[in-house]
Write a protein that binds this DNA or RNA. Structure first.
Length: 607
RNA sequence: GACCCCGUAGCUCAGCCGGAUAGAGCACCAGCCUUCUAAGCUGGGGGUCGCAGGUUCGAAUCCUGCCGGGGUCGCCA
């Protein structure tokens, strides 16, 4: 009866709050294992290699620790012997049901139901904050992603880096880092002049001139027509008669601005966010040549010198010119050769301004930097890491995450792209066709350094074969349980607003079916998954976790077909129903939270 | 020639900081089912973790060499 539930609520609320305190059961158990180990070995031993993790084989229990094996040598004891001693201490722990020593010295623990109950309650009570942690200690970290040249719309490969960087930034934010999401705008190099010349051609075209075929070396894309039209509208024919030196800066800034608008729209369509757009041009503008200053500083510290390079091996370079040039001593940091900072015409190389850019990041207080690059930039990792070490005096670290190629398919067949016509498949076209959620989830449903097959037909299928649908449907199906509960048992307060308070105090000890317990364990594992994904800089782990959780939930749901007593809603048993709805709420919370981290919608229904 | 990434079941891929008898989905085989939301369910077969050494109590995981696939290789970004 609802009445008895109401009374019960007052009785258990204090313990509910206390148990909700242990938000990360695995971290909690690690502390308990370490305490037990200290009781045996004293506090002088280094326990940094001790871990608590779920055993691969569930029959070994809920959690296992390697404490005895990694400490046996230091302790001067046999692993099994040490394990027995630690196990004895752990048996006194109030959360521990059973402890076994197995194999070479594993300590396997089976936890009391109250441990899982506490974790589930934590998920319900903390809601979207479940899994949030402070392991980042508010350390500043700069995540730079996309940074596509503002010379045209984004392609699918850019999209992968965008989604990856965005999700990684969210993950780091969620785990307590002070995250800056940054886009480096390459608005200064030679390619920007090429863009301007290409736009100038379109400008003449907009004025009615027949420009014929776009010459080699210029951007042929139709998307520049709008730039040409805008220029014609703003300047009439006045630019046309003047020398390039006059019109180039004007056309350049208009073109870059318009292309950045296109890119910003593309990013918005994917819901990818940045907090800083850092202009390369700003490094050399206004008389303050930060690139030159950086080179001078590195020359003073001996990292930059004048010298010669051997010609590159492999593909022959036709116009190789052996000359003395300004070089960065990246070999001091493990690179293969030293790298040039100036081109033969005296202008800076891309690398030179990138060094200055990363120095600027360091000067802005970032000791942790993450760059997300496309696979074709893989050869630049070492020199950039070398540069970061050099400009920071070894105080800053750069992690470069390389996202591999995306192969676009449609029902298994490669999508043809003709690059020379400039009409490659844009990111926008893909997003418009299959939707933001499908693009985001699929791009995260693979390790970043593995090539990704993206099948336009498959990602919109409504089947188990399509992880996006499967996970989102899991969320929608879980929400539907509450809709049904409200209809079938109106006396239960399980609306959007009052659900949490009610379910947090449900009699969760009634969840004792093996599948229910498995789902509780899965929910309890979420904070650990978040933590490891964040520290490893691998958002895909969240996507895989969500697929597993959804899979278990769907399987449990289906069992209710044959076994009505396992259904979530039991009309004549409000207590059991409340407990099961609490489990569903935990699942809803975690799926929604995980999808939010990935930037994917968690729909309440899918019709 | 050098460097980077990949190599795990027939296919597509997971495997967290080294951990126990290496997992999932698809496909295949057998049985069941026809729906509290529309993914059917349960069980089964299937692996020399590319190869060879090394480190370790323990290696798919770390190190070295080789093989195969992809990428990159001053003055593009």
């Amino acid at each position: 009866m609802p009445g008895s539930l109401t009374r019960r609520r007052n009785c258990v609320s204090r313990s509910a709050i206390m148990e909700a305190h242990s938000r990360n059961l695995f971290a909690d158990m690690l502390v308990r294992v370490r305490t037990a180990t200290t009781a045996v070995l004293g506090d002088a031993v280094d326990q940094s290699r001790v871990v608590v993790e779920p055993p691969r084989d569930p029959s070994h229990g809920d959690m296992a620790t390697n404490a005895a094996m990694v400490l046996a040598k230091d302790a001067g004891k046999k692993p099994r012997e040490l394990a027995d001693a630690i196990a004895k201490k752990l048996r006194a722990d109030p959360l521990v049901e059973k402890v076994d020593v197995a194999g070479p010295g594993f300590i396997n623990m089976t936890l009391k139901p109250r441990a899982w109950i506490g974790a589930l309650r934590a998920a319900i009570v903390t809601g979207q904050n479940y899994g949030r942690s402070d392991i980042g200690k508010r350390e500043k970290v700069n995540v730079e992603y996309v940074s596509a040249n503002p010379t045209g719309p984004m392609h699918v490969g850019h999209g992968r880096g965008a989604v990856f960087g965005d999700a990684l930034a969210s993950l780091l934010d969620f785990t307590g880092f002070d995250v800056t999401r940054e886009y480096y705008v390459n608005d200064a190099g030679a390619q920007i002049d090429v863009l301007a010349r290409s736009a100038f051609l379109r400008y003449r075209e907009a004025l009615g001139e027949n420009i014929g075929a776009i010459p080699d070396g210029l951007y042929p894309g139709e998307y520049l027509k709008s730039v040409g039209e805008a220029l014609a509208k703003a300047h009439g024919a006045t630019l046309k008669e003047r020398p390039e030196a006059d019109w180039l800066p004007v056309v350049r800034s208009t073109a870059v601005e318009m292309m950045l608008d296109v890119i910003r729209d593309d990013l918005a369509a994917l819901n990818v966010k940045h907090s800083v757009f850092f202009s390369e041009r700003s490094l050399i503008e206004g008389g303050a040549d930060q690139v030159g200053a950086t080179i001078v500083a590195l020359r003073a510290s001996g990292e930059v010198y004048e010298g010669r390079l051997p010609p590159p091996k492999g593909a022959p370079v036709e116009d190789w010119e052996d000359r003395e040039q300004t070089l960065f001593r990246s070999t001091d940091f493990g690179d293969d050769v030293d790298r040039p900072l100036k081109k033969s015409d005296g202008s800076y190389t891309y690398f030179a301004s990138d060094i200055a850019y990363h120095k600027a990041k360091y000067d802005r207080g970032f000791h942790n930097m993450i760059d997300v690059w496309g696979a074709d930039h893989g050869g630049y990792i070492k020199r950039m890491q070398a540069a970061v070490k050099a400009v920071s005096g070894g105080k800053a670290a750069l992690d470069v995450k390389v996202v591999q190629l995306v192969r676009l398919l449609r029902a298994g067949e490669p999508v043809k792209m003709s690059k020379r016509a400039g009409d490659f498949v844009t990111l926008r076209e893909v997003v418009d066709e299959v939707g933001r959620d499908a693009v985001r989830f699929m791009m995260l449903y693979r390790k970043n350094d593995a090539v990704l097959d993206f099948d336009l037909a498959k990602v919109i299928e409504q089947s188990r074969d399509n992880p996006v649908f499967y996970v989102q449907y899991g969320h929608a199906r879980a929400q539907s349980v509450f809709r049904n509960a409200r209809a079938e048992m109106p006396s239960l307060p399980v609306g959007e607003g009052n659900r949490v308070a009610f379910l947090a105090e449900a009699p969760l000890e009634r969840l004792n079916d093996p599948m229910e317990l498995a789902l509780m364990r899965k929910v309890a594992a979420f904070p650990r998954q978040v933590e490891s994904a964040a520290l490893a800089h691998e958002p895909h782990r969240i996507a895989f976790y969500l697929y597993e959780l959804a899979s278990e939930f769907h399987a449990h749901w289906t069992r209710g077909k044959d076994l009505p007593h396992l259904r979530f809603i039991i009309q004549n048993d409000p207590e059991t129903t409340a407990a099961r709805l609490a489990l569903v709420q935990g699942i809803v919370t975690v799926i929604a939270s995980g999808l939010t981290l990935l930037g994917v919608e968690a729909p309440a229904e899918m019709r």
